Amino acid sequence: MDIKFIKSENLKTKPDQNALGFGKYFSDYMFVCEWDEGQGWHDARIQPYAPIMLNPASMVLHYAQETFEGMKAYKSPKNEILLFRPEMNARRMANSNERLCMAIFPEADFVQAVEELVKVEADWIPTAEGTSLYIRPFMFATEASVGVHPSKKYTFVIVCSPVGAYYPEGVNPVKIYVEEEYVRAVRGGTGFTKCGGNYAGSVAAQAKAEKLGYTQVLWLDGVERKYVEEVGTMNVMFKINNEIYTAPIEGTVLPGVTRDSIIALLKSWGYTVHETHLAIDDLMAAGDKGELEEAFGTGTAAVISPIGELNYRGHIVTINDFKTGELTQKLYDTLTGIQWGKVEDPFNWVRVVK
């Protein structure tokens, strides 16, 4: 793929690396490419970060044909630029787009676009402890048409944001509210995709949880409201009697890159991992008996987020005395060590940008 570079005449002042927050600052450039029916992808370019002009009748504004990804770039101790399993993000976006009847951006072009943008923005990759450059590829329908059908035009964009910890708590336990009024996904729907609509539909539950003093919600299945699925922005895992339980990938749960990596690590350490339906009643009972030893969310943004409390119908279970568990910490240290190039990568997950 030929990528044109358009130089910016007004580069930004970079923020304080020790006060980045998450998703508050954006780098100087963005990648943009368009797709038109009959022409395919064209006009790939890296251009100055700027507002996107849209026709008021653009279909994304009316029918939500939109998908996105989340990934990161890191600086290694050798000052190398590292990506973590970018091909998985490319494939997941292709699966999301297929479900929403959108154009597919080829995997090789996706990885190339990310690499080229990150090379241009190398100075934006922070080096303070726990920081990284968050990368947000996204695609949306741009055909001007108020009619429900697959768009004949799409725009694919990648923007970058230097970030610190996703949760203000950092790698410390969070409180989770079990949601049973609203549902996130059902089989046959879009639960396995990263589309904006999934997240828009979750905001009401998230707002309710925050009012009650909880950081996130734990979603139950959309049919029986019985089985644990995932946390609002993360997959979720539970250590019960020294075995790991997490929801299966059956169309309602996002196939997380971090989730897949954590499962591989756990199995390599000899843990039994059950990708199975776990009833919320059984989970809470395990907590009451002291058998729920650790719980944690997994995702690109937070990496690993320990869970210290669950609230289900007012029944509260405290996990590991509201302390980060030994296994949770080991997983975080190992995975981030691999991502930052500080420890050995036996899985060949890390990609050096050259």
Rank of each mutant, 00 (worst) to 15 (best):
Y134S: 07
E116K: 11
G270C: 10
I6F: 08
K330V: 00
K267Y: 04
G290F: 09
K14C: 05
E230V: 03
I280S: 02
F156T: 04
T258H: 03
V60S: 09
H274M: 10
L83H: 02
F22S: 07
V174Y: 05
I280V: 08
C33T: 14
E326Y: 00
Y63K: 10
V303C: 15
F84R: 11
I319A: 05
V159P: 02
P248W: 03
I6Y: 06
G23I: 05
V114R: 06
E80M: 00
V159C: 05
A285H: 08
V223S: 13
T193Y: 10
N348A: 13
F140M: 13
I3G: 08
E224Q: 14
K194I: 11
G40M: 15
K152E: 07
P173W: 02
I52R: 03
P346K: 07
D123M: 01
H315T: 03
G232C: 14
G290E: 11
T258Q: 01
V253K: 14
A185F: 07
M88A: 12
T334M: 12
N311R: 08
D221S: 02
P15C: 12
E115V: 00
A285R: 12
K289P: 10
V157N: 14
P51K: 04
E275S: 03
S151N: 03
M93A: 06
V171N: 10
R91H: 01
T233D: 01
L220G: 09
G299I: 00
P255A: 08
I263W: 07
A165D: 15
L283C: 06
E181K: 07
N79I: 01
N320G: 03
Y199F: 00
T298C: 09
K323I: 06
H277I: 00
A285Q: 15
E116Y: 00
L133V: 00
M234Y: 01
G213E: 13
F22M: 09
R136S: 11
G196T: 00
D333L: 00
P106L: 00
V203I: 09
N348W: 06
G222Q: 05
D345H: 05
F322V: 10
E181F: 04
D321I: 04
K239H: 11
P162V: 05
K194Y: 13
A141S: 01
Y63V: 09
A247P: 15
E180S: 09
Q39D: 10
F296T: 00
W340V: 00
T131Y: 04
T252Y: 13
N241H: 12
L54K: 02
V148Q: 08
N95H: 09
Y167H: 12
W340C: 09
A204C: 06
K194A: 09
E210A: 11
V32E: 15
Y271M: 10
N311S: 12
L292V: 09
T336L: 06
I262K: 01
V32A: 15
P306S: 02
T272C: 11
A122S: 11
V317R: 06
V303N: 14
K14I: 03
D221R: 06
V223A: 14
L278D: 03
N79K: 02
V257R: 03
R136H: 13
G23K: 10
A57K: 09
L292P: 13
L20T: 08
T300H: 06
W349V: 08
E224N: 14
